[in-house]
């Protein structure tokens, strides 16, 4: 192996670590949130209409070290049906994947506070992740409401 190959070894090692963990692909998240439904692109990136009149959106939010990918299912009336964490690679706060924490979002709408520490509980050691997931869900709901 040429010396030039070894030079890049640490960089490659660190950079590949950024692609380590995925819990759901898009199709898997779609099936988990809307079992049996079909999906049609709305024309906006990572936003689909569901066959029952709802929306399925994949949102990327800032984590402590890396981005966190969140799948958000929205009912026809504009409330949250379910969210799933598709990627999470932080030191702490894997509780964001717990069903009980994610269940706090069910039924929230664009008019809900969706504020960490108010209607969404914080997770100790993962405050930044909890805040950004909460903000991300609120941003999607308000975006869909604004676009009609």
């Amino acid at each position: 192996m040429k010396a030039s190959h070894w030079v890049w070894l640490p960089v490659a090692a660190i950079s590949t670590s950024a692609y380590a963990t995925t819990y759901f692909s898009v199709e898997q998240a779609q099936r988990a949130i809307f079992p049996g439904a079909s999906f049609t692109s709305t024309g906006k990136p990572n936003t689909w209409w569901t066959s029952n009149g709802g929306y399925f959106v994949v949102e990327r939010v800032v984590g402590k070290h890396e981005y966190i990918t969140v799948a958000i299912g929205i009912n026809p009336n504009g409330t949250v049906k379910q969210i799933e964490i598709m990627d999470y690679r932080e030191s702490y706060g894997y509780e964001v994947r717990d069903a009980s924490w994610r269940a706090q979002f069910v039924g929230k709408s664009a008019n809900s506070p969706l504020q960490l520490g108010a209607d969404i509980k914080n997770i100790s050691g993962a405050t930044l992740s909890s805040k950004h997931i909460t903000d991300g869900v609120k941003r999607v709901l308000q975006g869909l409401k604004a676009s009609g």
Binding site: L9, A13, S17, T22
Partner: peptide
């Protein structure tokens, strides 16, 4: 968890394998 590795050959492949091993430690 899914671990991905770029497709490559020869010396680059060996470097990638070692990189992946180090990445496993890092991650």
């Amino acid at each position: 968890a899914v671990r991905r590795m770029p497709v490559c050959t020869g010396h680059a492949a060996r470097a990638a394998v070692l990189a992946a091993m180090l990445a496993t430690v890092a991650s």
